[in-house]
Amino acid sequence: MNKKEYLDLLSKELGALPYNDVKEITDEIDAHFEMAKQEGKSEEQISDDLGDVHELAKSYINCTPYKLPQVLKDKEPKKKSSTWAKIFSIAICCVAVPITCLWVWFDVGLATKIIASSSVFVLRLTNFGNYGAYKFAVIMNQIGSIFYVIFLGCLLYFGIRLLIAAGKKFIRFNRKLWTRGF
């Protein structure tokens, strides 16, 4: 590499620095070339002795106290949440908490009813001999009970699943709203 190539490459590599700094640096390296030439060295030899131009540029950039443009460090500034987003977030929490409580209360009620109906079903079965004339009615009642309990069971099962799914979604949505805004 001759002097011109070396200096051109150096100033290109120093592109992130202010123009004045690049000028001062290339002037100093230029002076180095001139003085070394007086000792009878060729430009190629001097370039080799100076070392890798990328390394040299890197050391200069690391030694420079100036801050480099922000673009080189961070990709893009994070979106900040607004006050309104936070107020809205609290407001929907105020609605969501009572709904969740009601839902849980409803599910507990369903579970209790299922247990009660099942125990009555079992009791009727064990006492079946004592019903006498009511036997037919009790049989029909038992069949009805089976469907009733299955129906309540389905309601309870889907109720709990929906509660968990909706709860997860709500928490995720609200956290995003709180930290990053609308």
């Binding site: 001062e24 640096i25 100093e28 390296i29 180095h32 070394a36 001097i46 002795d49 100076l50 070392g51 890798d52 390394e55 040299l56 050391s59 200069y60 690391n62 030694c63 420079t64 106290p65």
Partner: peptide
């Protein structure tokens, strides 16, 4: 060392 190594150091020392 590579001859070039000293120049960035001189520049840093001047800045400091």
């Amino acid at each position: 060392l590579a001859d070039g190594t000293v120049y960035p150091i001189l520049r840093k020392l001047a800045a400091d």
